[in-house]
Amino acid sequence: MDNLELMKHANDVRKGIVAAVHGAKAGHPGGSLSAADIFTFLYFEEMNIDPKNPKMENRDRFVLSKGHTAPGLYSALANRGYFPVEDLPTLRHLGSYLQGHPCLQHVPGVDMSSGSLGQGISAAVGMALGARMSGKEFRVYTLLGDGEIEEGQVWEAAMFAGHRKLDNLVVIVDNNGLQIDGPIDQVCSPNPIDKKFEAFNFHVINLKDGNDMDQIRAAFAEARATKGMPTAIIAHTLKGKGVSFMEGSVDWHGKAPNDAEFEIAMADLERIGEALCQK
């Protein structure tokens, strides 16, 4: 799939995020939007998956370690055909299968339950190890928040993955620079993130613009070509990307738009979509 097509899908994924969070009247749009291009690239291009066979044995796995951005994952899965896009606004509703945080047993395509920060990466490492021990070819991807990496367990997992040279593992850090209480370098700075992963024996890729499909493609190609060590992609992204009033704003980490804001957000994304169609 060419990058223009992927960008159109990413825009649809963003619409789904906004619709889901608006429908839920709660949830985490900021970090879902910042990672929308990465979700899209993974599910529409990078991973060996089959939406009609979500449990396909040798599929590539994805673990959303920053589980609060479930709207981003759900929208990517829905747009990819795992379940109806129309279901997205039932997010967080009583009786909906779209639980507030990813749930293995309820949501088709979710490879691991997550939401408690720091834990998803360990499960991803376990999957990568399992693939190697069984001689299976599948690759494992996990997406972390840059605030999430303040959790000590992340570094336990990174130490293990580096030690075991798990080159079928790609750790992506959505480095949008903001966490609930403010900018990451003011709350409890995890910087420098790249040097930390290097020190834990990862091949590190600094993805300068994690919202740029060309650069995303190049980063995942480099990860795939990397042998003998796991890869960490530090993706510099813009929180709230695509929705004018959410961009770069910590206020939209975990808040849903009201009806008026929803209209503005969807209009923003419509404009972006139309511009992509003109290309």
Binding site: A123, V125, L129, K136, E156, A157
Partner: peptide, 23 residues
């Protein structure tokens, strides 16, 4: 036999991931 080092939280997560690959 997988020695996870002195990192019990990670060990439980790795066990979870391994079980999802059929182990």
């Amino acid at each position: 036999h997988i020695d996870c080092g002195i990192a019990e939280a990670n060990m439980m997560g790795i066990a979870a991931g391994l079980s999802l690959t059929g182990k």
